[in-house]
Design a protein around this nucleic acid. Sequence first.
DNA 1: CTATTTGCCTACTATGTCAATAGGTAAATA
DNA 2: TATTTACCTATTGACATAGTAGGCAAATAG
Lengths: 132, 132
Amino acid sequence: MVISTKGRYALRVMLDLAEHAGEGPIPLKDIAERQEISKKYLEIIVKDLVKAGLISGSSGKGGGYILDRQPCDYSIGEILESSEGEMAAVACLSSDADACPRASVCKTLPLWVEFDRVVHDFFYSKKLTDLL
Amino acid sequence: MVISTKGRYALRVMLDLAEHAGEGPIPLKDIAERQEISKKYLEIIVKDLVKAGLISGSSGKGGGYILDRQPCDYSIGEILESSEGEMAAVACLSSDADACPRASVCKTLPLWVEFDRVVHDFFYSKKLTDLL
DNA sequence: CTATTTGCCTACTATGTCAATAGGTAAATA
DNA sequence: TATTTACCTATTGACATAGTAGGCAAATAG
């Protein structure tokens, strides 16, 4: 974490798509207008969502983006992680960081592990449909 | 949030002081050596803790830092907030940011509010003594 | 088959925060 | 009086964030 603009926008894009599910591909232009977010910036957001396999895009006239699954089958956690990367609250827990040499003696590490679990459970237990 | 180095170090300083409570003022030099953190950087950390009224410093020979209360009377939350500032997971909730004009229509805001509460409760229910 | 609409791609940039260093002054004691 | 300690202001390099700019590729409507 923290939850940055990128992750928050990603969630709003997913919500927007969920609200217009079944209407065929939704152009980014429409989402940008409704959500009052720069279309250019949204391009970056949706790119990550496509790469993560959460949505699909189609080019050309009549194109746009659609959800790959039912809205109830998306957890908030996976949406945030898709756009923000790993959701580690502290560097000690990040897998790409070198392991802390003090890990075995660190009295604070268990706290971060526990917190990480709380955060993870919170976001993965919530579904996209819970926000509709 | 996120919990940065500053907050994590602050917690380790507080723990170190708790472990040596009753031994009189603890010089920063000793903490720096035990915790393997640059003394210069720790100066910044303890400054915030002093300002927040969590610890007190005394100059001169035999000087150092002491806890102002019993270790059990400090919550982890107040230690982190003292060194990191307000613990808001998303900008939408930060009090110093201008209020978001979309707040009244935003479908994601309640999620952030709820998450903020979970995080707050987690850290404020934990005491310094829980880590000893 | 052409114009238009849409997604997709690479690059660039300004701003700010983080993590830390540097060099000094003030206070207190042995 | 020398030494030890806290305390103060400034500076820096690295990195992430939050965007912008401009163009190419694909697909459809006419």
